[in-house]
Design a protein around this nucleic acid. Structure first.
Lengths: 105, 105
DNA sequence: CCATCACATTGATGATTGTCAATGTATTGT
DNA sequence: ACAATACATTGACAATCATCAATGTGATGG
């Protein structure tokens, strides 16, 4: 007899926990400035981009950019590496896998 | 000589307008209840699902569900069709195309 | 016409958010 | 040690949001 446990994960409706996790990722992308930030970081590839080069093109104050980068970092979408006084941001690979799977199907 | 106009759209950094549109879509998905709502509606296929069947599984009040469905509708992700006193919700096909393209690359 | 059912709208409340000026904290070069 | 640079944190404010109780609206059936 078929029980809930026999239903493959992908066929089961979203439970509250997974929905919460996914919603956090989408929330990180739910702001124009953060979307453009992520886009710029992603374009920079493995090398990444210095956050000092992100303030001007986005026309926001330095604290605002810093705040948005923190949101992206805490959502697991980007990571930073110190190089002297600079911070280089790059995308976390596979960070968008769940989001991708959800939006795809 | 290469000018900005010769760069294909997909290779250009996100401008503010497209970022705003995309952010609106992600904002609609940035809530656990709405994610699960969208998931349930999508699972219902072309037929769609009566919104009366969405209140109980999500454990929210009827006005709250109604509010979230409105958000999804205004984001262009779902549409509704009247059937007597009921409203049947179904997904708008291709509504996630832009989001998919962004998350994919 | 009236009661009922399905759903939307209103109004209120507490929580979260985007933004910036001011300030704090590392790190580097002198 | 000091000044300068890069970035983070704090504190404040207006705006938006998720939620629900109460109420409104529109369709159906008797």
């Amino acid at each position: 007899m078929a029980t809930a446990k026999t239903i493959p994960l992908s066929k089961r409706p979203l439970n509250d926990a997974s929905a919460g996790d996914l919603a956090n990722v989408f929330a990180a992308l739910a702001d124009p400035v953060r979307l453009r930030l992520f886009d710029l970081v992603r374009r920079a590839g493995e090398t990444g981009v210095c956050s000092c080069d992100l303030v001007e093109p986005l026309e926001r104050s330095q604290p605002t950019i810093s705040h948005h980068l923190k949101v992206l970092r805490e959502a697991g979408l980007v990571e930073s590496r110190r190089e002297g006084t600079w911070l280089w941001y790059s995308v976390v690979s596979d960070a968008l896998d769940d989001a991708n799977a959800f939006v795809q199907s």
